[in-house]
Amino acid sequence: MTTKTINSIDRRRVVNMIMTSLTAVCAVFAIAVLVAILGYIGVRGISSLSIEFLTDTPKPVGEGGGIGNSILGSAIMTLLAAFLGLPVGIAAGVYLAEFGRNWFGNTVRFVADTLIGVPSIIIGIFVYTLVVLPMGRQSGFAGGLALAIIMIPIVARTTEEMISLVPNSMREGALALGAPQWRVTWNIVLPAAASGIATGAMLAIARVTGETAPLLFTALNSRFYNYYLDQPMSSLTVQIYNYATGPFEVEHAMAWAATLLLVGLILVINILVRFFTRKKF
C-alpha cells in the first residue's frame, strides 16, 4: 500500500517535470523560429543592400536596378491610408469609449472585431469593384483606400481602449467647471489619451505597411517613380511578391534585400512602441 502511494507520487512528479519542461520547449521553439526568420532575412538581405538599390527603379534582369519607386509608393499609400483611416478610426473609438455603452456601441464593437479578422484580400476585391472598375484602371488612391479600410477597425478599438484608461474624475472635474461635453472630450480626454492613441496608430500603420493582398489588384505595380494617385503605384510588398515568385536568382536576392528593409521598419516601430509604453501599461 505504502509503496503504491510512493510510486504514484513519483509518477505525478515525473509527469509534472516532463510537462513543465515541454512547455518551456514550446517557448524556445517560438523564439528559434523568430531568430531563424529574422536571421535569414538579415544574412540574405544585407548583401544586396546598396544606395543604388534603395534609389533606383527596376531594370531588366541582370542590369541591376532597385526599389526606390516601391519605397516611395509604399510611403505614399501608407500616408494616404493614415490620412483617410486615422480620423475615422479615432472618432469611432471616441464614440465607443464615451457614448458606446448601449446596443449600438456593442454592435459596432462586435462588427469591428470581426472586420479585423476578415481576410485583407476581400477588402482588395471590394475596392476593386468600387473604385478600380469605375475608374478604368488601378491606382495609388485605390491602394491607399483599401489600406485605410483595414486600418479603421484596428484604430477604433485601440483608441477606445486608451480613452477608457482616462480616469472618470478628470471628466467629472471638467464638467463640474462648466465645460460642455465636447470640450471635455476634445481638450481633456483626448490629450490625456494622446500618447496611447498615437502608439495604436503607429501599430496600425506598421500593420498596413506589410499588407500585400489588398494592393495586388488595387494599386497593382509600376516600374517608375510615380507621384500621381490616379496611376498604378508600386509598393514594397507587391514588389517582394513579384521578385520572390520570379524565376531569377538576382530577383530573389532583391526580394530578400527589400524584405530586410520592410521587416526592419516594422520591427523598429514595434520595438519603439513597446519601449515607450512600458512605463504606462
Binding site: 472618432a91 464614440y95 464615451e98
Partner: peptide, 28 residues
C-alpha cells in the same frame, strides 16, 4: 458621458456617431 445640452455637443456626437456607423456601413 452625460449630455450638457449645448449645440457643440450635438455636432460632436453626430460626428463620432457617424464614424462608428461607418464601420457597420463598410461591412454592409
Amino acid at each position: 458621458m452625460a449630455n450638457t445640452g449645448t449645440k457643440g455637443d450635438k455636432v460632436f456626437q453626430a460626428i463620432v456617431f457617424a464614424a462608428a456607423l461607418s464601420i457597420i456601413l463598410i461591412v454592409a
